[in-house]
Design a protein around this nucleic acid. Structure first.
Length: 241
DNA sequence: AAGAATATCAACCGCACGTGC
DNA sequence: CGCACGTGCGGTTGATATTCT
């Protein structure tokens, strides 16, 4: 069994290692990452192999600078989905979640903050074990949450499932004629929706368990800020939930 | 020219979730 | 039902590159 050296931490992948990994996956296919290092003779952890493959060695990976269109799409999808990098990356052909995340953190987040664009208030990072679904929150959204539910949803604790419906995501959902049967809070929802849409606030998603499959109503006039492309992204997103 | 500061991004970790037993 | 295991995700870190003083 291959031993993992004590100095392997942050060790860069060598061309030889890349070659071994690529050849192994070409022969045996993806998956079984835990046992892959031993079988392939790599002194790496399985997760490291998986990461290397999906972030660098996969044949479909696109290199080079992000285009203006890609930037624009990232910004708009981030506004819709928050820090759900894997979902955003799926909409950018050849880009990985790590690439998108890095690009956002090093370029876009900083730039948007500097531009003091009212549609992009300063972003707060929430450190919570339950916040993988909701890591982007604005002050206004928090206030709306309090008004709508009587408490903030920033904890996103699953035990609060029925209380986290503010559903800042709901601001878009409702505009697509979505109603929440779960708590029969359509009225407060629509208030939230209208407020958010009018101000073009960023949105975040609190809990996938609370959200319902949207129904697209062709008779509704969608706000300018939501383009048909984003609409399709949104539908795709729901298809993946 | 050189050291310090900052930016970039690859690599890792911890956690959540799904699945099989 | 509960446990173990594999996988995938987002957040964070650290090495290296680049820019600044």
């Amino acid at each position: 069994m291959a031993q993992i050296p004590t100095d392997y931490y942050r060790k860069k992948w060598s061309p030889e290692e890349d070659s071994i990994l690529t050849e192994y996956i070409r022969t045996h296919g993806e998956g079984h990452w835990t046992s892959l290092p031993v079988k392939a003779g790599l002194k790496r952890k399985g997760k490291s192999c998986r990461l290397r493959w999906f972030n660098h060695l996969h044949p479909n990976i696109k290199r080079g600078n992000f285009s203006g269109d890609e930037e624009d799409l990232i910004i708009r999808l981030h506004r819709l989905l928050g820090n759900r990098w894997s979902l955003i990356a799926k909409r950018l052909s050849g880009r990985t979640d790590n690439d998108v995340k890095n690009y956002w953190n090093t370029h876009l987040c900083k730039r948007l903050t500097q531009e003091d664009n009212p549609t992009h208030p300063p972003i707060k990072k929430i450190k919570s074990k339950y916040c993988s679904w909701n890591s982007t929150v604005t002050d206004k959204v928090e206030k709306i949450n309090v008004v709508a539910n009587g408490e903030s949803n920033t904890k996103c604790d699953p035990s609060h499932e029925n209380k986290t419906i503010t559903k800042t995501a709901g601001c878009i959902l409702n505009k697509y004629s979505v109603c929440c049967e779960k708590e029969n809070k359509e009225e407060s929802y629509h208030d939230t929706v209208e407020q958010n849409l009018q101000s073009h606030e960023p949105v975040s998603i609190s809990s996938q368990h609370d959200l319902l499959q949207p129904e697209i109503n062709p008779n509704l006039l969608y706000p300018d800020s939501i383009s048909p492309m984003l609409l399709s992204d949104f539908c795709d997103f729901w298809g993946n939930v």
